[in-house]
C-alpha cells in the first residue's frame, strides 16, 4: 500500500470522525461505498467497513461508559438478535457473490438506504424539527421524563409474553426487541454497517427506549456486533488492516474535534447539510453503478469525488461553525448580569 493511499485513508477517517463525533451517527456507512468505488471486492469493502465500525464504537463506548446510560439486559438481547441477523446477512452476501450480483445488490441497497434516510433527515431539518433524534451525550437527562413516541406506546401495549422491563420504567415484549435486533443485524452483515443509524431510531421510535439509554446501549451493542461481524469476515481474509488502521487513526482524532464542536454549534443548524451529504452518498453509489453498466470508468472517479466532497463539505461546515462560535464568544462584551 502506497504512502499516498495511507494518507488518504487517514484524511477520510478524519472527516468521518468529525461527522461521527458531531452527529453521533453517520459516516461509518460511507466507508463501504467508498471502498467499493475504489475497486475493492464487495466482501473486503464490507469486512473492512465492519472492522472500522468496531474500532470506532470501542472509542465511542469508552466515552459513554461512566455515564450509566447502558441497559445491559437490553444490550445482551440485542446482541443475540443481531448476531443471528449478521449471519443471515453474511450468507445472503456470499450467495450473491456466488452468482456474481453482490456488488450491484449491495450498491442498490446503499442507494435506497442512504437516499431514504437522507430525504427523511433533510425534510425534518428543513421543516424545523432538526431531523431525527438527538444523539448527544446528556449527563443530566431524566429518563422518567423522556417522551415516548406514539408508535412505541402502541407497541408497548401489545402483551406478547415474555415481557421484559427496560431501564426508563416500562415493559415491552421480548419478541419485539429480538425482531428489531435481527433486522438491523441482517443489514449489518449484508452492508457492513454497525446498524446504529437504523437501530437508534428503531429503539426510540419502535420500542420507546429513552434516548440516552438507547445511545449507550446501542454503542455497547455495536462493539459486539461489529466485533463479531468483522471476525466472521476476517476468517475468510476479507478484513484488510492496511485499510482499517489508518481510517481508525484519522477517525479517533476527528471524533474528538466533532464532539468538541457539539458543545459550540447548534446541531439543528447543520443537520440539513448532513441530510444532503447522505443524498450525495446515494447519488455517488448510483453514478458508480451506472458507470459499470455503461462501461464508463470515468464515472467511478466522479462517484469517489462526490463521496469525498460530501464528507469534506459537511465536516468543514462543522469545524467552520465551531471556530466562528468560539471567535464570536471571544469578541462578545462580558455579561453584567451579576
Amino acid at each position: 500500500m502506497s504512502l499516498a493511499l495511507i494518507v488518504m485513508f487517514v484524511g477520510f477517517g478524519l472527516l468521518i470522525g468529525i461527522l461521527f463525533g458531531f452527529f453521533g451517527m453517520g459516516g461509518s456507512f460511507l466507508v463501504t461505498p467508498a471502498l467499493l468505488v475504489m475497486g475493492y471486492d464487495a466482501n473486503v469493502a464490507v469486512g473492512s467497513g465492519l472492522a472500522f465500525v468496531f474500532g470506532t464504537s470501542v472509542i465511542a463506548t469508552l466515552k459513554h461508559r461512566d455515564l450509566g446510560q447502558v441497559d445491559y439486559k437490553l444490550g445482551v438481547l440485542m446482541i443475540a438478535g443481531t448476531t443471528a441477523g449478521i449471519e443471515v446477512g453474511k450468507i445472503g452476501l456470499e450467495y450473491l457473490q456466488h452468482i456474481g450480483l453482490a456488488g450491484s445488490v449491495v450498491s442498490v441497497a446503499y442507494v435506497l438506504l442512504l437516499g431514504g434516510i437522507g430525504v427523511f433527515v433533510t425534510y425534518e431539518a428543513m421543516k424545523g424539527s432538526g431531523g431525527g433524534i438527538d444523539h448527544d451525550v446528556d449527563e443530566d437527562a431524566d429518563l422518567e421524563d423522556e417522551e415516548i413516541p406514539e408508535i412505541a406506546q402502541k407497541i408497548q401495549s401489545y402483551n406478547v409474553p415474555p415481557m421484559i422491563s427496560i431501564r426508563g420504567g416500562f415493559r415491552v415484549s421480548l419478541w419485539m426487541v429480538l425482531a428489531v435486533a435481527f433486522a438491523t443485524g441482517v443489514l449489518s452483515g449484508f452492508l457492513g454497517v454497525g446498524g446504529g443509524f437504523i437501530r437508534m431510531p428503531a429503539l426510540f421510535y419502535l420500542i420507546g427506549v429513552p434516548v440516552p439509554v438507547a445511545v449507550g446501549t446501542d454503542l455497547f451493542e455495536i462493539v459486539f456486533s461489529g466485533g463479531i461481524g468483522s471476525f466472521l469476515y476476517a476468517q475468510s481474509g476479507a478484513v484488510e488492516l492496511g485499510i482499517v488502521a489508518p481510517l481508525l487513526a484519522g477517525s479517533a482524532l476527528g471524533a474528538r474535534v466533532g464532539a468538541a464542536a457539539t458543545n459550540l454549534v447548534d446541531e439543528d443548524d447543520i443537520k440539513v447539510y448532513f441530510g444532503v451529504m447522505l443524498l450525495l452518498g446515494a447519488i455517488a453509489v448510483a453514478v458508480r453503478e451506472i458507470g459499470g453498466l455503461l462501461e464508463m470508468p470515468v464515472l467511478d472517479v466522479v462517484s469517489l469525488a462526490i463521496i469525498l466532497g460530501a464528507a469534506l463539505l459537511v465536516s468543514g461546515a462543522v469545524v467552520y461553525s465551531g471556530v466562528t462560535v468560539l471567535r464570536e464568544d471571544a469578541s462578545a462584551p462580558p455579561s453584567t448580569a451579576d
Binding site: 474500532g55 470501542v58 471476525f231 481508525l248
Partner: peptide
C-alpha cells in the same frame, strides 16, 4: 483462520484503546 482473525480483531481493539488514551 480463526486464530488469525482473532489476532486481527484484537489488533483493531488495541489500536482503538491506544488511540483513545493517546488522543
Amino acid at each position: 483462520g480463526s486464530v488469525d482473525a482473532g489476532m486481527l480483531i484484537g489488533a483493531v481493539l488495541l489500536e482503538a484503546i491506544v488511540l483513545y488514551i493517546g488522543y
